Computed example of a mutant assay.
Amino acid sequence: MTNILARLVEQQGQAPVNQPRDPKMGQDIALEGFQKFSPPKFLGELDPEVAERWLETMINIFAALNYAEERLVQFVIFQFEGPARAWWNVIRAKWEREETAWTWLNFVREFNKKYLPPIVQEKRKDDFIKFRQGTLSVSEYETQFAKLSKFAPELIVTEQRRVRRFVQGINVKIQEALAAEQINTFTEVFEKVQRIEIARAKVKAFHTKRRGAPAGGQEQLYGDLGRPTS
């Protein structure tokens, strides 16, 4: 999950509107803010799907809170119960012995090692390599792209490679419409692809309406679109 987690760490330097980052915020106040999101408990299930969904939920909560890294680790372990708590006690002892920094990335590496074994991560990587838009909307495609890409960070190590991989997976008709565009960032390509999708949907809707319009209504249809009427 290196890609999405790296973005989360970057977000910590950008305070959200009306929520300035305060490293000295009291522990009780910070914990109260965390608990308002009703974070789910984790019991240590070995089902990779359960573990992955739980971690993604925590990532989304922490992205909104903008807390310091050490506090993220402190709060996430509050949600451990049963086998998960026992596992964390072992990891905490190892960290103290090896003087490992309490960073979010270190925590996630330990979590993935335990609950998302290599065989699962390899399967997700293969899914990402083969992933195509198909019948998905651009928004749905981007969401799934982001979810799978974290299992293959080496394939999107630069912004250019991330953009190229994203474009390779979208439908051919959109790729053709995008060919003449100059694109520098992922945000830019996503916005342009969305605009192309909207434009294509409008054209499709127009032709559908035109085919269904009665013969005497063609003039009005063209007139609505700004074309001269007879």
Rank of each mutant, 00 (worst) to 15 (best):
A205D: 15
R132G: 07
E70V: 10
V163D: 06
W104Y: 08
I156V: 10
A86F: 08
R124D: 11
S137P: 05
E154N: 06
A152E: 09
E197R: 07
P118D: 06
V193D: 05
F145G: 02
S139E: 12
E99F: 12
K202Y: 08
I196W: 01
T158A: 12
F62L: 15
P83D: 05
E98G: 11
V76K: 02
K202P: 00
A179V: 11
Q175D: 06
L178W: 10
A180P: 08
F128G: 06
E122P: 01
Q74M: 07
Q74P: 03
R124F: 11
E122Y: 06
P118F: 05
T158E: 14
E81T: 12
P83N: 02
F78K: 11
Y67I: 04
A179P: 12
A93S: 03
V138C: 04
F190A: 05
W95A: 02
E191R: 04
V76M: 01
V138E: 06
E176P: 06
P118M: 02
Y115D: 07
I198L: 15
I196K: 05
R71I: 08
Y67P: 01
V73G: 06
V189P: 04
F190K: 06
V73Q: 09
E159T: 02
L136Y: 08
V203Y: 11
F151K: 02
I183N: 00
V120G: 15
N171R: 11
I198G: 09
L148F: 02
V138Y: 11
K113Q: 12
P117A: 03
A177G: 07
W88G: 00
I156D: 05
Q121S: 04
Q168K: 09
L105D: 10
